[in-house]
Design a protein around this nucleic acid. Structure first.
Lengths: 116, 116
DNA sequence: CACACAGATTGACATTCATCGATATAGTTG
DNA sequence: CAACTATATCGATGAATGTCAATCTGTGTG
């Protein structure tokens, strides 16, 4: 229960703002920046791309380590950041952990730019 | 002529990709990550917000230093990053430098997420 | 021309971050 | 229960980043 859920709750306050004068509060800015920070690493973008492009819509860590040419701990670390940002969903089945894109998360992240 | 223009040329290669199997190339990922890296700082998001929300659609550095509670060199540094990322336009008139949002840049950045 | 002012650049410093090796945890199988 | 495998966590390290003080570059004004 430590995920930041930065995408979800961001809407609660953004959808009602006049999006005009009050600019962006320091707090809102901090929250939105967390999402973009998660997207600001090339390897994390590729992780999202691989997970998204996979036919099943999900991928396990072992499938992600090789194409990125990174160590397993590093991939695990990047995945955690994406999960904390609310972009990826993690489901453990047996020994494997399957990651999938949170439905609508990318669209919501894109929406953050429109509501600047 | 040192601006990276990361948003503009990204389309040249992204618009024609099948956006399916080949995942995201390391090079494409690196370029897209640059845009999100520019967006990954709270103060830069607030800068964009202020410039966008200003009635005239532009703002000079002196208008941006105070609301962010940052030093002038720091604001100047952030603005340079946003210009290099292709998000802001800089126009110098007299003693002042006016910054405005590059038309369509935010929408284009949002589009990067859809074409992952 | 001397001064004042807006903004950019430089250098330094502390913090954050990406990465890796080593280790821990948990599920599976013999 | 012991060995194995997949994944997560920890600790360390080098690189990148945000910030500031000091300085430089123009541009207007007396």
């Amino acid at each position: 229960m430590n995920s930041l859920q930065t995408v979800e709750p961001a809407l609660d306050e953004a959808c009602c703002a006049p999006s005009g004068q009050p600019v962006l509060s320091a707090e809102d800015a901090r929250r939105k920046a967390l999402v973009f920070k998660a997207l600001s690493d090339p390897n994390r973008l590729r992780l999202l791309s691989i997970v998204k492009s996979g036919g099943s819509g999900e991928a396990c860590v072992c499938d992600l380590t090789e194409p990125l040419d990174l160590g397993q701990p590093t991939v695990s670390h990047h995945l955690k950041i994406l999960v904390d940002a609310g972009l990826l969903h993690r489901e453990k089945r047996g020994t494997w952990a399957y990651y999938s894109i949170v439905p609508g998360a990318l669209e919501q992240a894109a929406g953050l730019l429109a509501s600047l």
